[in-house]
């Protein structure tokens, strides 16, 4: 089995973690975009590194061109990328060109009867799909879930390629998103708010609670997308961030599958909702049927007296 990991050097390192369960007998090569140092390249656990120095991975066109160049010379069973938005474009295009199947947002892989079976979430998080793909296949891995792993391989050969850099898409402007240091993806405790809050001002209650217990504030889609009370970095769910805290406190969130899809990896889920029939209770460890406007102030009062 031959596997090509492609991406920025940090992404390639992350991908060694993803393929660890299938890598023992595989030959693993890396296609690296950009200009990493020689030491950095040698620290990767792969047997061959191909460096595309002039490929800018923020352009899908560059990723596609570099991949096509490499795949034109060598055949791989699996071409593996991190499923960033740009890579999802590039991966789909490359797969179509080489006539291959592909999967996006793979969350795991294991060997069954000697062949890799890839795992992903489908049906808005309500089902887990186990997929087998004929080779060659393109695998796009859910970001941020894997740490570099030493597969025992050492870089023997470093090859350099360059691309023409011809692009079909012209970037007119690129604005960084405002990040106020919120990273719900990394939070240990999340206080998450939904439409149960009646106004933007009322969210300050949630922020105060979060401050008190050392949590980050998350939210359901309507709060960020429709009402725009919070920025998108707080948005959790199928089309938002996927989180994995020790404790997730859902307040005034009904528990629609698209929201639940983002919180499945939480260790403990607590739900506060005034409707005893809210679906969130079925998907929680502990539920409190209560008006949030009564619950939050009381909870904060309790916690601050305890703290003293």
């Amino acid at each position: 089995m031959k596997i090509l990991l492609a991406g920025r050097i940090s992404e390639v390192a992350e991908l060694t973690g993803f393929i660890a369960p299938i890598s023992s007998t595989a030959d693993i090569h890396a296609l690296i975009f950009g200009k990493p140092g020689e030491d950095e390249i040698r620290s990767l656990s792969v047997s061959k590194a191909i460096v595309a120095e002039n490929a800018d991975p923020s352009y899908a066109d560059d990723v596609v061109e570099a991949l096509k160049a490499v795949l034109g010379k060598e055949v791989y069973d699996y071409i593996v990328l991190v499923a960033t938005r740009i890579n999802k474009e590039a991966g789909a295009r490359v797969a179509q060109t080489i006539g291959a199947p592909a999967i996006t947002e793979a969350i795991g892989v294991r060997l069954e009867d000697g062949s890799p079976v890839f795992i992903r979430s489908v049906m808005a998080g309500k089902a887990i799909s186990k997929e087998t793909l004929s080779s060659p296949a393109v695998i796009m891995v859910a970001p941020g879930r894997n740490k570099p792993v030493d597969t025992g391989k050492r870089v023997g050969e470093i090859q350099r390629i360059s691309i023409s850099g011809k692009r079909s898409v012209e970037i007119i402007e690129r604005k960084g998103k405002e990040r106020k240091g919120v990273r719900v993806e990394d939070a240990e405790i999340i206080v998450s708010v939904g439409r149960g809050f009646k106004s933007k001002e009322d969210l300050s209650m949630a922020f105060k609670l979060a401050e008190l217990i050392g949590a980050q504030v998350g939210c359901s889609r309507p709060i960020a997308a429709d009402l725009k009370w919070l920025s998108e970095e707080h948005w959790i769910g199928l089309s938002g961030k996927k989180v994995r805290p020790k404790l997730y406190i859902a307040i005034g969130i009904s528990g629609q599958p698209q929201h639940l899809a983002g919180i499945m990896d939480s260790k403990i889920i607590v739900a506060i909702n005034k409707d005893p029939g809210a679906p969130i209770f079925k998907y929680s460890d502990y539920g409190v049927v209560e008006d949030l406007y009564v619950f939050i102030p009381k909870l904060m009062e309790k916690l601050s007296t305890r703290q003293k």
Binding site: V122, S129, V289
Partner: peptide
């Protein structure tokens, strides 16, 4: 068309305690 992509999907079991306080 050939079979190049096969899958089996299974329902996610709710593994939450579901305790109402």
């Amino acid at each position: 068309m050939k079979k190049i992509h096969e899958f089996v999907a299974e329902g996610v079991k709710i593994q939450r305690k579901g305790v109402i306080i």
